[in-house]
């Protein structure tokens, strides 16, 4: 079974994502900030991370860099309200596998995740 790590400082968003992916049969882990996220990555080695950017303590960019430096197998998907072209480019330049914008479609996000980890 595939492990997904959800990282966002908004509880409701986490809730919705958790529900959706659990329904799809994934094992779901949750982190509420970047610090937590990095610890969980190290400990649990998820297959994919859905990563918010604007978070307290450590932001999504840092986490992405951390993950891509150390855990090459882990896929990173940015999920952020920052939707400008340059934001997308920055995210992808950091090595993210996908950059999705909020608000998101639940169907879409599931589809993208399935593409990345079957």
């Amino acid at each position: 079974m595939n492990k997904i790590l959800l990282v966002d400082d908004e509880p409701n968003i986490l809730l919705s994502l958790e529900f959706v992916f659990k329904k799809e049969g994934y094992q779901v882990l949750i982190a509420r900030d970047g610090e937590e996220a990095m610890a969980l990555v190290r400990d649990e080695l998820p297959d994919l991370i859905i990563l918010d950017i604007m978070m307290p303590k450590v932001d999504g960019y840092e986490v992405c860099a951390f993950v891509k430096d150390n855990f090459l197998k882990t896929k990173v998907v940015f999920l952020s309200a920052k939707s400008k072209e340059k934001d997308l480019q920055k995210g992808l330049a950091l090595g993210a596998d996908r950059y999705l914008t909020k608000p998101f479609s639940t169907k879409e996000i599931v589809a993208e995740v399935k593409k990345l980890i079957n």
């Binding site: 908004e10 409701n12 919705s16 529900f19 959706v20 608000p103 998101f104 479609s105 639940t106």
Partner: peptide, 20 residues
């Protein structure tokens, strides 16, 4: 930007409610 956050939740749960 700030507005996107509540909307995200609203949308997501609306979709969930619709389908599941």
């Amino acid at each position: 930007h700030e507005m996107k956050t509540p909307i995200t939740s609203i949308r997501a749960f609306s979709e969930i409610l619709q389908d599941e």
